[in-house]
């Protein structure tokens, strides 16, 4: 089949519209989802507030006002969210805490997306011995007590603030790898994967073009769940003195402190919690919107 197959390529090329990709389509669909767009705007505002807020707030995060310990919110003296039990301004500290918590959330989610999805997809698709070795590695990391792991890291590297990122990153991708592996296992028996193999597509291309896009639904849902999990895990570390150090703070730390004093100083719990809750709400809406947008059938 040579002559019979010749195609007037030039004419057809002129007619061909630009190719539509998964992501450009998803973006188009996402823009139509009002809840997701509103949530993105709110989340962006929170992020901006966390980045510039501590610089423009009336008080510094570490300035101690002995005369205003546990003071309620007051617009006159610039303590918009009141003060905490050491007399420091809660407004500045809440915004500053957002930096730490959001950065941790994003870092852990990225790690879980890149390593977790890649790891799981490769293990699940290739299978056999590769799968066994890769998943046993995950099992070992999973079985390692988290506290033990953190203490081990600190013994080796000292109290580096960066260590929290390493520690949280190291555990955040394990669940994702398992979820994606499960998806990949069921996907690899699907006929379109067999068809792709029969068409001579290489293993790497099959994983990237066929396995990963088909896993995106559960991946995105799980990624939105990773963020709150990591933020709360960080507060647990900080509570034990292994996380962020004073005078720095995070939402997790502020909420833990506030919860202990809720009967006498409600604002210490309410403001940081409201920020965390708003962030999680936004992430859920964005995650939902993304999942719908990435499903070609749903439009």
């Amino acid at each position: 089949m040579t002559e019979a197959h010749a195609v007037p390529a030039v004419e057809a090329a002129a007619l061909a519209p630009a190719g539509r990709g998964l992501w450009s389509d998803a973006w188009r669909r996402l823009r139509r989802n009002r809840a997701a767009i509103a949530a993105s705007v709110v989340l962006a505002l929170i992020a901006v507030a966390a980045i510039v807020g501590p610089e423009v707030a009336p008080h510094a995060i570490d300035a101690i006002y002995w005369d205003r310990v546990d003071a309620p919110p007051d617009f006159a003296n610039g303590h918009y969210f009141g003060t905490e039990s050491n007399g420091r301004d809660l407004f500045a500290r809440t915004l500053f805490g957002g930096r730490v918590s959001l950065a941790l959330g994003i870092a852990a989610t990225l790690v879980s997306l890149v390593i977790g999805v890649g790891w799981g997809a490769i293990a699940g698709f290739i299978g056999g011995r590769v799968d066994a070795i890769m998943m046993r590695t995950v099992d070992i990391l999973y079985a390692l007590p988290f506290m033990f792991f953190v203490i081990l890291l600190m013994v080796y590297f000292g109290r580096e603030p960066l260590l929290i990122f390493v520690a949280l990153g190291a555990v955040s991708w394990l669940d994702m790898a398992r979820i994606v592996r499960g998806q990949a296992l069921s996907l690899k028996r699907r006929e379109f994967i067999e068809a792709a193999r029969a068409a001579g597509t290489g293993t790497g291309a099959i994983i990237l073009r066929h396995i990963v896009p088909n896993c995106l639904g559960p991946v995105i849902v799980f990624a939105t769940l990773t963020v709150p999990q990591v933020i709360l895990l960080e507060s647990f570390l900080s509570f034990l003195g292994l996380g962020v150090r004073e005078p720095m703070t995070s939402w997790g730390v502020l909420i833990a402190d506030g919860a202990r004093r809720v009967e006498t100083a409600w604002w210490q719990l309410v403001f940081p919690s409201a920020f965390l809750a708003a962030t999680l709400f936004c992430l859920n809406f964005i995650g939902d919107g993304l999942r719908d947008a990435l499903d070609p059938k749903d439009r």
């Binding site: 539509r20 389509d25 699907r190 379109f192 068809a195 073009r209 896009p213 990435l294 070609p296």
Partner: peptide
């Protein structure tokens, strides 16, 4: 089932 539902 022989076509990938996620790609055009």
């Amino acid at each position: 089932t022989s076509l990938n539902p996620f790609l055009t």
